[in-house]
Structure formats: structure tokens, C-alpha cells
């Protein structure tokens, strides 16, 4: 029963990803300007254009090109970047690794940043602490990530000059270069994720804390700490999983902004560069990867909540 439910969910994810590939391919297809003139320049002879069109397969109808492209993608070949003439895998690979490190740091930081305030607020809802924390949260909610990044730059680069203003890392960067480079971008990302997570977690925890089994544990004389970590948190994990998935989609968008602010050489900057250059294969690949990450995270979260929720398990 559970297996069937999970299988359906996975099938859904694959279908959605397929639909994304169609949407992306169609959007890139209607990108303005002929792809060949973009490569060869405006003064190219018609013969040269014709040769290149044939070479790139642009003399075939769009449906055929889509099929070829999808076939390649399924075999792990994302095509060749138009602007650098290198394979897309080669261009994206190292950048994706950089961004994965950044995202992981941000994610690890965001766990205590969201759990601790949420727990403190949920333990005494309506208290002065809760009210002040909620108010701060509400103000921070109005500050977009690019503005938050600027504020952090002013604080830790201008007012207290301890950190570098750009996070350029290269192959030659040592461990401490990486640490210094990663602090500001990952803190900005972590804060902007936590702002959303805290609100949801707080409400979820308050709900769980009012349940009978938590009351029972409290009445047994269990220390509050144990009640919270052993009884309340595990039961708030279902919703938390969904928040995590949401965070990952947010991370993908946030990464683009943060990489731009701090000039971090990652996946987001490749995507922005590809869009600015009209580099079709690179755009298609980056968007597809972003969607793949989002869909995978969402599907895993759904499967997680199917597995942890006995009601959902027996429903179908």
C-alpha cells in the first residue's frame, strides 16, 4: 500500500520534470535572434550560417531537436555551450560543486537559527520574548535577500571590517580562504531561510505541545527539555520536512542573488551569465538541474511524510 503510494509520487515527479523540460525548451526556442547570428556575428555569409545551422541541427524541426536533446540529457550529455564551446557538463560541474558547498553551509547554519528561536517562542507563546521575537521576524520578513546582503556588507565589511567584500574562490584557494569567503554568503542565505522557517516551526510546535501525549509527559514530571526534544520535535518533523523542501526551492533562488552580491563563482552565476549571453544549451541545462533539485526535494519530503504519518499510510 505504502509502496504503491510512493511509486505514484515518484511517477508524478518524473512527469513533472518532463513537463518542465518541454516548458524550458519552448521558452529557449523563442529566445530572440537567430542562434547562428549570435555565434557568427551579423556579418556572417549566408553559406556559413547554413553550414552552422546544419552542424547544430537547427535545420531540423523543433520537435526533432527536442527529442535529440532529451535523448542526450537522459544519457547524461547536456550539450555544448555556445559561448565557450566547451561541454555543458564541464562548465557546470565545478560551479555546481561550489554552490553545493555554499548551500550546505547555509543549510547547516539555518538549523539552529530556525529551531532555537522557534522552540523558545513555542514554549511560552504570548510571552514578552515571543512577542518581541515575532516582531523582529516580521520586520526581517520585509527585507529581501539582496538587501540583507547589502546590510551585512555594510555591517561586517564597512563598519566592522573583518570580512572580505567579495567571495571569489579559485582552485588555488586554501581552506581558510574558503571559510572567509563562505561566511557572509552562507549567513545571508541561512537568515533568509530561517525567517520563513521560524514562523512555520513555531506554529507547528505550539500545536504539538498542546497535544495530550505531551501534556502527559509533562505531568509525569519529565524535564521540559526532554519533553521538547523527545516528544514534541519528532512529531513536528512531518511539517518540518515540507519546510525543508520549501527551503531548498528558496535556496536555489537565493543562491543566484547571493552569488551575484558576493561574486561567488557558483551555479547561479553560470545561469545568469548563460541567460545574458543567450547560451541556449547552458540555459536549458541549468534550469533543468534547478527544477530537478526542487522536484527531488519535494518528492523526498512527501515520501518522508507518507512514511512518518500513519494516517496517510492507511488512507489509500
Amino acid at each position: 500500500m505504502v509502496g504503491k503510494l510512493i511509486l505514484t509520487r515518484i511517477l508524478y515527479a518524473v512527469l513533472t520534470l518532463l513537463a518542465v523540460s518541454v516548458v524550458v525548451f519552448a521558452a529557449v526556442e523563442i529566445l530572440p535572434g537567430d542562434i547562428t547570428t549570435r555565434i557568427l556575428g551579423r556579418s556572417a555569409t549566408p553559406e556559413a550560417v547554413a553550414v552552422l545551422r546544419k552542424q547544430l541541427g537547427y535545420d531540423q524541426p523543433a520537435v526533432m531537436r527536442y527529442a535529440n536533446w532529451l535523448g542526450g540529457v537522459l544519457q547524461g550529455d547536456l550539450g555544448t555551450s555556445l559561448s565557450s564551446q566547451r561541454s555543458v557538463n564541464e562548465v557546470i560541474g565545478p560551479r555546481l560543486a561550489n554552490t553545493a558547498i555554499l548551500a550546505l553551509c547555509a543549510f547547516v547554519l539555518s538549523v539552529p537559527l530556525s529551531l532555537l528561536p522557534a522552540a523558545a517562542q513555542a514554549l511560552k507563546p504570548g510571552s514578552l520574548l515571543d512577542t518581541i521575537a515575532s516582531a523582529i521576524n516580521f520586520v526581517l520578513l520585509a527585507i529581501p535577500d539582496y538587501l540583507l546582503a547589502s546590510i551585512m556588507l555594510i555591517l561586517f565589511v564597512v563598519v566592522i571590517p573583518v570580512l572580505p567584500s567579495t567571495s571569489l574562490v579559485t582552485d588555488a584557494s586554501g581552506f581558510w580562504d574558503w571559510v572567509r569567503a563562505l561566511i557572509l554568503p552562507s549567513v545571508v542565505l541561512a537568515i533568509s531561510i530561517s525567517i520563513y522557517a521560524i514562523r512555520l516551526l513555531r506554529d507547528g510546535l505550539i500545536d504539538v505541545l498542546s497535544r495530550d501525549y505531551v501534556r502527559m509527559a509533562e505531568l509525569k514530571g519529565m524535564p521540559l527539555r526532554v519533553v521538547l526534544w523527545r516528544h514534541a520535535f519528532p512529531n513536528a518533523i512531518g511539517p518540518t520536512l515540507n519546510i525543508t523542501a520549501l527551503n531548498i526551492s528558496y535556496l536555489i533562488g537565493g543562491v543566484i542573488i547571493v552569488e551575484r552580491v558576493f561574486s561567488f563563482p557558483g551555479f547561479g552565476s553560470v545561469m545568469v551569465g548563460a541567460l545574458q549571453a543567450g547560451d541556449a544549451p547552458l540555459i536549458e541545462a541549468t534550469v533543468l538541474i534547478a527544477a530537478l533539485i526542487y522536484i527531488t526535494a519535494n518528492t523526498l519530503a512527501d515520501i518522508g511524510s507518507i512514511l512518518t504519518n500513519p494516517k496517510l499510510r492507511s488512507a489509500q
Binding site: 512527469l15 513533472t16 520534470l17 513537463a19 518542465v20 518541454v22 516548458v23 524550458v24 521558452a27 529557449v28 523563442i30 529566445l31 530572440p32 535572434g33 526551492s249 528558496y250 536555489i252 533562488g253 543566484i256 542573488i257 545561469m271 545568469v272 541567460l275 545574458q276 543567450g278 540555459i283 534550469v287 534547478a290 527544477a291 526542487y294 522536484i295 519535494n298
Partner: peptide, 26 residues
């Protein structure tokens, strides 16, 4: 629903950037 689901799977910033690029520089 499938179509909208696909659009939602593209993070909104990226979806917006694609749409702007598709409209062309003019």
C-alpha cells in the same frame, strides 16, 4: 494542473529571468 505544476517547479526567480530573456533585449 500538470502544466502549472511544471511552472511551479522552476523557482520563481529563474522562471522570471527566462521569461524576460525570451522577450528579447528590445
Amino acid at each position: 494542473q500538470r502544466f502549472f505544476e511544471a511552472m511551479i517547479s522552476i523557482p520563481f526567480l529563474i522562471l522570471g529571468l527566462i521569461a524576460i530573456s525570451a522577450a528579447g533585449p528590445r
